[in-house]
């Protein structure tokens, strides 16, 4: 597999009234050509900040990339000047934002907005740009693109707007698409449409997607690989099956068991994760999840765990993986949603 982006030991901080907020603390991951990497986490886990750092879209006045590299095609994006980054943005890496209501300019026709990117990054005549825009709109499933190209964003529904945003993002055939909660603002039936569309386009153009989301259902539907973030760190990363059927980190267990299952017995209570996420300006010592972790050891409250490789693709940051730690069985019901499959994996 061809690696197209690799992030190494990224640290990002914000400064506010209350002091420094360490939003991202030592995040590393790779993205391969044509695959979808999902970054899952709750609000404040640093997943959106990571995405914005890749695009260099963080507010200059109060944020700083303290450390780390983002390598893309032989370049280190962290050190790139703004002008060089602008060339990259939209043509090689694009982004789809959460809210289709605010990510389009309300005073411009959607045709102009899609064409803008085309004109900036590709030299083409007005006529070819126009036909290409119509093609793009058709591609993302907008009916009568020839007519709707001259309409304004308010004449589109939320789902249709998100399609336009995707068309804008894909206008120059980028190698990588960063989708920051692309379906969170949409209804379930529309979400299904958009996810289907993204998968279809990915297959067609071999685009790598970094999908930022909090919804494990969306992850299961879209991703090949998953990174689970908590308090600015990647707690566990692995292939889709590894994370869903053989999770090793208590936080991943907690996330999976706090979701209700459509097919599960409803008389049983859900198993939530107790407590609330930590305050990023006053992080606890040791593992940031330790205060909420029911398996926490003494060591967890004092030392940060290192990364343990469970398999070539599966990495976890947890003291339970240390050989001195007591053996803990993961809670029932996780990965057991399909028992046949589960035993098959375990046996192999």
């Amino acid at each position: 597999m061809e690696k197209i982006l690799s992030v190494e030991n990224l640290h990002v901080s914000f400064y506010s009234d209350g002091g420094e907020i360490a939003a991202v603390r030592g995040v590393s991951f790779d993205v391969n050509k044509g695959e979808t990497l999902a970054i899952v986490g709750e609000s404040g886990s640093g997943k959106s900040v990571t995405a914005k750092t890749l695009m260099k879209l963080l507010p200059k006045q109060n944020s700083i990339i303290k450390q780390g590299d983002v390598k893309y095609g032989g370049k280190n994006l962290v050190q790139l000047t703004n002008r060089d980054m602008e060339k990259l943005r939209g043509s090689e890496i694009s982004m789809v934002f959460q809210d289709p209501m605010t990510s389009l300019n309300p005073t411009m026709t959607i045709g102009k907005q899609v064409m803008e990117g085309l004109k900036r990054h590709r030299t083409m005549s007005k006529k070819t740009a126009y036909t290409r825009t119509v093609e793009l709109l058709e591609l993302v499933g907008i009916p009568d693109p020839g007519e709707r190209i001259n309409q304004y964003p308010h004449q589109f529904s939320g789902g249709m707007r998100q399609r336009v945003v995707i068309a804008m993002a894909l206008a120059c055939n980028p190698k990588m698409l960063i989708a920051d909660e692309p379906t969170t603002a949409l209804d379930v039936t529309i979400q299904a449409q958009i996810l289907e569309l993204m998968k279809e386009l990915q297959k067609k153009f071999q685009t790598a997607i970094i999908l930022i989301t909090h919804d494990l259902g969306v992850v299961a539907n879209m991703a090949q690989r998953v990174a689970v973030m908590y308090a600015g760190e990647i707690m566990e990363s692995g292939t889709l099956d590894e994370i869903f059927y053989q999770p090793k980190h208590p936080y991943t267990w907690g996330l999976l068991s706090s979701m209700p299952k459509l097919h599960a017995d409803r008389s049983l209570p859900l198993t939530p994760i107790p407590g609330t996420p930590p305050d990023l300006s006053h992080l606890p010592e040791g593992c940031p999840f330790a205060p909420r972790c029911q398996y926490a050891l003494k060591v967890c409250h004092q030392y940060e765990p290192g990364k343990t490789k469970v398999s070539t693709t599966h990495t976890v940051s947890c003291w339970l993986e240390d050989e001195r730690a007591p053996k803990v069985k993961k809670p029932e019901g996780i990965g057991g949603m399909q028992r046949g499959r589960q035993s098959k994996i375990a046996g192999s």
Partner: peptide
């Protein structure tokens, strides 16, 4: 001995 479950007091 650090690898023993933490007392719930810390939690």
């Amino acid at each position: 001995d650090m690898f023993t479950p933490a007392s719930p007091g810390i939690v």
